[in-house]
Nucleic acid binder design. Structure first.
Lengths: 342, 342
DNA sequence: CTGAAAGCGCTAACAA
DNA sequence: TTGTTAGCGCTTTCAG
């Protein structure tokens, strides 16, 4: 039962004494073009030979690779995992595969990866959480590869995207903290210059703060951690200490940052939420793994992934462009936030 | 500059007034077979036309898809992320792509995914953390697809694997706790029946405990959480409470379980490590995100991923089988463990 | 140095 | 219901 060479459709055809066309029809589930007994025979032969169709050859003809390419900034964060899980789930549902690439660092290799995806003739590309530079856009568009942006967008273009409304989400998160009675709500931003998860969230935060300033709220205070990771908190510990004199609530641009802040506060002997309230962003699994559990502004990452994959499939199957989709965010109050006492 | 149809090598050849063979040589970096000026001209045309070689067509001939398939039990855990990151990194280094599948639930779809990988003619398959059933093994072997097992093994077969020595790692972890002066070290196992991360670790734990039993250590106590996830702790909280009367240290079969235990202990008002010591397994990022930071038995997941990918490439390039590789584990003492007082 | 030609394994008209 | 045939885009002998 061991084969030195993988059987081809030709060998199946010969063994079953039919033509390759017939085998092809049966393998591909074409409803007609063969009798019941022919089908039975071919199926038997396929089983005996252990024949597996060569998708590569099929792709050449149909021009469908049944593969979705995903470009992620990293693979190791829970943020990426959640999205990827959603994408893979929806892709599997639609009988597609997922090939991944992570662009690490300054996206120097992004163009390379796009090229590879194009060469592999993927059915579509999901571009996650990175700025879509004109060169990327042109490259993909000129090859008319379906493209969906996830947790990012390209204002002024027609490229479909799926994301939450970051500005509104940040506004709501800040308003939630303000509503708890905190006069001083500081923001720990991921990166002031980040056009995706930085700028819009800071804007939403500022807008909420300014609205309440007349009501006695402290002025906005943005502490730039220059990153969204847990470790990035250490660079701004000094600024946090300063802020702590007046500000009693911190809105972090990511859950990892919030976890970092919680960790720092606990080490300093502060109590959360008694001494300070912490609100994160994303709703990653980590929020419930730390003690106290982190309140956060939820971004439905898995759903975003699912939707993006479905959009790729739809576009490929000729659906109308559709445009962008904003999915709802949600403020989730857990244990790291409480009303300001006194 | 917009193309309705993707240019082929033929069009490049025509535009450059050379044959497709020449274009092919240049594109593939064959050292000879064309003059410098021919090359320059072809390169110009390629650039103008925006030609991208069709990897699919190339794969048909070379029989190399330059793609590595990875089968993971899930995509959303840090365990999987770390491995995947390693695999993708090494794959990119070797100019390979990675296609992923997650077998969720009871591996009902594992066979389907293997089939898809075979149909896609992947260069090799990395099979992660799941039992390799005979049917899987036969399917892959009969098609002579390079296969590497990661964090699992198939005793009695020649299939290469990369993993740590689970039994020894558990033995060392337990010995570490015992060495801290704890008389009672309980184990929270992921699953008693899990042949990969369950049985061997329990065996290592028991061996270490039995060795010290003469020295006054309490008898082994295995609490089966029936899973390795954070949430799985809730099912055994009662058993933990019971154990707490006598046992002062807990060795968890995963970091998530350890984080779950830490969370539970903190909620119960217990102090860690003063009231109980907790040791995890894996060394996931979460260990340093919780407070106190979790001590753990490190499994070099990223390196495991890198090595597995490299092995696939080596095998494909005709390297000798090589057999399995055990990578070293390491007990990392952080803040959740301390010497037993009194 | 260069090109013609023969496929890789499969699908999809088109005949029969 | 079947089979024949012409490619998909590319690589790779083999001639020239």
């Amino acid at each position: 039962m061991r084969f030195t060479t993988v059987p081809t459709i030709k060998e199946v055809a010969k063994a079953a004494k039919v033509s390759t066309a017939t085998v092809s029809r049966i393998v591909n589930g074409v409803a007609f073009g063969y009798s019941a007994e022919t089908k039975a025979k071919v199926l038997t032969v396929i089983d005996e030979l252990g024949y597996t169709p060569n998708t590569i050859a099929r792709t050449m003809i149909t021009r469908k690779s049944c593969t979705i390419g995903v470009l992620l900034p990293d693979l190791i964060s829970m943020f990426s995992s959640c999205i990827l899980e959603g994408v893979e789930t929806a892709a599997a549902q639609a009988r597609r595969n997922v090939v991944i690439s992570h662009t690490e660092s300054k996206g120097h290799r992004t163009m390379d990866y796009l090229r590879v995806m194009a060469e592999k003739r993927v059915d579509g590309i999901i571009f996650v959480s990175e700025v879509l530079r004109p060169e990327y856009r042109d490259f993909v568009l000129r090859r008319s590869i379906p493209l969906v942006l996830l947790a990012t967008e390209a204002p002024g273009s027609e490229i479909p995207f799926v994301k939450v409304n970051d500005e509104k989400a940040a506004f709501d998160g800040t308003a939630f903290l303000l509503g708890l009675g905190h006069k001083g709500v500081a923001m720990i931003s991921g990166s002031k210059d980040d056009q995706i998860a930085g700028v819009p969230r800071i804007r939403g935060y500022r807008r909420a703060m300014e609205e309440k300033e007349a009501g006695g709220a402290l002025p906005p205070l943005v502490i730039d951690a220059e990153g969204f990771r847990f470790e990035d908190i250490v660079c701004v510990e000094g600024a946090i200490d300063d802020a702590l004199h007046e500000y009693s609530a911190f809105f972090c641009a990511s859950d990892e940052l919030a976890a970092g802040l919680l960790n720092y506060a606990l080490r300093r002997g502060l109590r959360v939420p008694e001494d300070l309230s912490i609100l994160g962003f994303d709703d990653l699994p980590i929020t419930t793994m730390v003690t106290p559990a982190l309140s956060t502004v939820k971004q439905p990452l898995r759903e975003l992934g699912i939707l993006a994959a479905e959009m790729i499939v739809d576009i490929q199957e000729g659906a109308p462009p559709g445009g962008g989709r904003y999915l709802p965010h949600q403020v989730i109050a857990r244990e790291s936030t409480s009303t300001r006492k006194g």
